[in-house]
Design a protein around this nucleic acid. Structure first.
Length: 520
RNA sequence: GCGGGUGUAGCUCAGUGGUAGAGCGUCACGUUGCCAACGUGAAUGUCGUGAGUUCGAAUCUCAUCACCCGCUCCA
């Protein structure tokens, strides 16, 4: 029989079996399966939807309704938002999603670096070679040129877009020493597009959002103007995003339609490092609150060269998925976005994003700062710290984490969800269908269903009913037996031990028992 | 995007050219005394999809789709 709290290494779990269980028990189905499915899309079944909603509600509770206590001992302020999936397409030009990723890119097969084709210039020196370098920055390859004993004046400079791909084999890429490592230019745009209106034309082309974050930036000014928020504060949003991934893989880990839980934390630039650190650790605490084993979670700081165009600092919270073990895979990114997004939207929309910080002004005045210093401290475009996690990845993590093989059980496996997140909180069974047991069980069921997701089942043998609940991850089964008629108490069958609790539970305490377990 | 593998009932699979199968699960009825019990009965398939070869295709050929593994990719 399984022991409680045994550490089950994800590496020992089979994704194939987990996917099978998810389908068998109604957690996750392949999308449009009757037509052969569609790559990169998944449907959430009854139990999967419940699990997803439970995680989402907990995130919302912990981020918006009851956010954490800040470093100064006061609760931080975060408001909620639900922005549109389709926005004015200029949004994506400002954010860099169109400009940056619809342009052809070239890869360096040697260093694995990727460059925008039109951002590379090439110095061509007849007979000596061709050197690629970042646009307007020939100093970047000064050492290489010196070594080759050539100077800028020895040759001509051309943009890479003006060079035929057949000539690429002669080019030495910016970060290598040997020629011919650049691939032909390829289009990379991960955004799905569509058309708003009946007529398909370039004028009414729109995009499905590739992240929920931009919807928050677009509403930053609305929130500041209407919600009486003061810096620092956050805006949180949960919703679907769409990315036309090259290779959807690993069940729901990388899908083309997915759900994000993002919060943008706006703060004074001078305080951004403090908040970055705060949110980094708060987010890890949240993941642990889901019941995820600490041994399966870790931080991974991004190296400078893998930072996205908007980011100053970025750390991933990673989980040891069965398909990455013994390595880890991304779960949530906490990014320091600086003032990139608001500045971009200010420039493109001509809407002022500056914030007047009266508290900072007062503090600077009291500190006897100069006029210039006071002005700088009190008026600024806020910096943004962004904890961005995947809700559908959270579902995957809980599925992986809960999946617990146990050869001693009839099902061979049970789903060890924390009661708070379990799709079904409890099941109510009459041991047999006679002697008044169904009547008592039905009464208990009707009471409990008012407050909890519970199931009543009187069919088939008691063992079979327990086994079904094991696979659904239902933490408790209340069984009405012959003794109930005398002692007004039920047997509590505990999922994790696979056995009945030693103490019988009085009927009038079942509600309180469940409430306490779910609150844990 | 490249290479390899897989696809038959809800699940696991058998079926190498001649009527579509088994076990488990599911459902109904009976029975029941705590971990997939037992008896009786029932439902469930465009054999992933589409073409082709053939008198006849789950089976042979081609294409295509989905999933898995390894590369690649993942702002």
């Amino acid at each position: 029989m399984a022991q409680e709290n045994i550490y089950t290494d994800p590496a020992t779990k089979s994704m194939e079996e987990l996917v099978a269980l998810c389908k068998r028990r109604g957690f996750v189905f392949p999308a449009s399966e009757i037509y052969g499915g569609i790559n990169g899309f998944w449907d959430y079944g009854p139990l999967g939807t419940a699990l997803k909603n439970n995680i989402r509600d907990w995130w919302w509770r912990q981020m918006v309704e009851c956010p954490p206590i800040g470093p100064d001992g006061e609760p931080v302020e975060i408001v909620g938002l639900d922005s549109s999936i389709i926005q004015n397409p200029k949004t994506w030009e400002a954010s860099g999603h169109v400009g940056g990723f619809s342009d052809p890119m070239v890869d360096c097969t040697e260093t694995k670096k990727r460059y925008r084709q039109d951002h590379i210039e090439v110095l061509i020196v007849d007979d000596k070679g061709c050197w690629g370098f970042p646009e307007n920055n020939i100093d970047y390859i000064a050492k290489k040129l010196k070594k080759a004993n050539v100077s800028r004046d020895d040759g001509t400079v051309k943009n890479l877009t003006d060079i035929d791909t057949s000539e690429y084999e002669k080019i030495i890429a910016p970060d290598t020493d040997k020629p011919g490592t650049l691939t032909a230019p390829r289009e990379f745009n991960l955004m799905f597009d569509s058309h708003a209106g009946a007529i398909k034309s370039d004028e009414n082309k729109v995009y499905l959002r590739p992240e929920t974050a931009q919807g928050i930036f677009l509403n930053y000014k609305n929130i500041v103007d209407t919600m009486r928020v003061k810096m620092p504060f956050g805006i949180a949003q949960v919703g679907k995003s769409f990315r036309n991934e090259v290779t959807p893989r690993n069940f729901i880990f990388r899908s083309r339609e997915f759900e994000q839980m993002e919060m943008e934390w706006f703060c004074a630039p001078a305080e951004s490092a403090k908040w970055y650190d705060f949110w980094k650790h708060e987010r890890m605490r949240w993941w642990e609150s889901l019941g995820v084993d600490k041994a399966n979670l870790r931080f991974r700081d991004h190296d400078d060269d893998e930072l996205a165009h908007y980011s100053k600092m970025c750390v991933d919270v990673e989980y040891k998925y069965p398909f990455t073990a013994p390595g880890y895979g991304e779960l949530e990114g906490v990014a320091h976005r600086g003032c990139f997004d608001l500045t971009q939207h200010q420039e493109h929309s001509k809407t002022k994003m500056e914030y007047f910080d009266q508290a900072a002004q007062l503090a600077a005045k009291e500190a006897g700062k100069s006029k210039e210093e006071i002005a700088a401290a009190s008026k600024y475009i806020p910096n943004v710290i962004e904890p961005a996690s995947g809700l559908t990845r959270a579902v995957l993590v809980l599925l992986c984490e809960a999946y617990t093989p146990d050869p001693d059980r009839p099902a061979g496996v049970y789903m060890k969800f924390k009661p708070k997140f379990a799709p079904i909180k409890a099941a109510i069974f009459p041991l047999v269908n006679k002697d008044g047991m169904p009547e008592i069980a039905t009464k208990l069921y009707h009471e409990l269903r008012q407050k909890y997701v519970v199931q009543y089942d009187a069919k088939q043998s008691i063992g079979k009913r327990y086994a079904r609940m094991d696979e659904a991850g239902t933490p408790f089964c209340f069984t009405i037996d012959g003794d109930t008629l005398n002692d007004n108490a039920v047997t509590v069958r505990d999922r994790d031990s696979g056995q009945a609790l030693a103490e019988r539970l009085p009927l009038d305490q079942v509600d309180a028992f469940l409430a306490a377990k779910i609150a844990e």
